[in-house]
């Protein structure tokens, strides 16, 4: 399947030169070829969950010990930044 790099660039709001588009088309083809290795994934793991979580690669497993000091959902919510009056921006500096 071919990817329309111009279309993707537009949706990502990036203006590209023709030379850049040609270069990225090559990158796309290279990654498409590289990802062909996934055809070898064992069937038991290639059943992809509906909502795969990138963080699952590094986060704690359910059976891993939690020392009790790692934050839970309730604590996170209790300490969540409060919205400012206009409700458009959290009342803390934005993280870059």
């Amino acid at each position: 399947m071919q990817m329309d790099i111009k279309k993707i660039a537009r949706s990502l709001r990036i203006r590209l030169s023709d030379a850049e588009i040609a270069e990225f088309e090559k990158d796309f083809a290279r990654l498409d070829e590289l990802s062909g290795i996934f055809a070898d994934l064992p069937s038991y793991i290639s059943n992809i969950p509906e909502n795969p979580d990138s963080f699952s690669g590094a986060a704690l497993r359910p059976d891993e010990p939690n020392d009790g000091q790692t934050m839970g959902r309730d604590e996170l919510l209790a300490n969540a930044p409060k919205l400012s009056k206009d409700k458009t921006m959290a009342a803390v500096p934005r993280t870059v």
Partner: peptide
């Protein structure tokens, strides 16, 4: 820009199952 473009492709409707979901499965 290269990474943003490739990432945009990976997350696009046409490629997310072929690339992004498979990559996460491989990572698991």
């Amino acid at each position: 820009k290269q990474r943003i473009l490739l990432g945009g492709c990976a997350l696009s409707a046409d490629f997310k199952e072929k690339w992004f979901f498979k990559a996460n499965a491989a990572r698991a």
